[in-house]
Amino acid sequence: MFEARLSSATTLKKVLDAIKDLLNEATFDCNDSGIQLQAMDNSHVSLVSLTLRADGFDKYRCDRNLSMGMNLGSMAKIMKCANNDDTVTMKAQDNADTVVFMFESQNQEKVSDYEMKLMNLDQEHLGIPETDYACIVRMPAMEFARICRDLSQFGESLVICCTKEGVKFSASGDVGSANIKLAQTTSVDKEEEAVIIEMQEPVTLTFACRYLNSFTKATPLTNQVQLSMSMDVPLVVEYRIQDIGHVRYYLAPKIED
């Protein structure tokens, strides 16, 4: 028996919005410590890694490890039927080929349930090595989304250059070129508005804008985003989900041909 309950459907809606741009389907691996999802996009350029810890749910029970392959488009149709303040419960029997989403209104007067067929997905699990990154940037998630959106007008690629002084985002193309520099915050009044840089060595890396823009669909989940970078290795973009886990995106860099 698997059962996981959240007191507000908003969190699950936001999590789904954060991953469905990159993935059409994905397997939710459930065990007694929580729910994990790891999947690459079709082109194998980016990877989504989602963790929802058991202790972050209002109720969580998972008697046997369970892998639930879901079509995220179908899941989105179902989640659209939930009000933000509904309680949402996911339920499945052991070895089941369906999962049930149950929504309960706050006054308990409306209860809906939606049963969705599960899929058998071929899963390629990637082992991600522990890495000490040369630069770690923490910045407002809204600011990062804005920068990705603005600069993707000027080129397909975004260059991120991180030094001790700050982080510079650049794009160039037919129109011309664009640069946005963010200095490290000197006095932190509000932590969620700060730009903080931990640098061992300066880094300059180039990434495809379209993936970065997909990652920013996670912005509603949290105030701050963390970018971890080292030369010539994938970028990690991490959004923490309050009290329950995180969604991390890995993006392979573009390199000189």
């Binding site: 082109s43 194998h44 350029v45 690629s157 392979a252 860099p253 390199i255 041909d257």
Partner: peptide, 14 residues
């Protein structure tokens, strides 16, 4: 010219 790399060249399959 910048070439897009694949994640598969950085991470190993488990």
């Amino acid at each position: 010219y910048m070439k897009q790399t694949s994640l598969k060249s950085f991470f190993s399959f488990t």
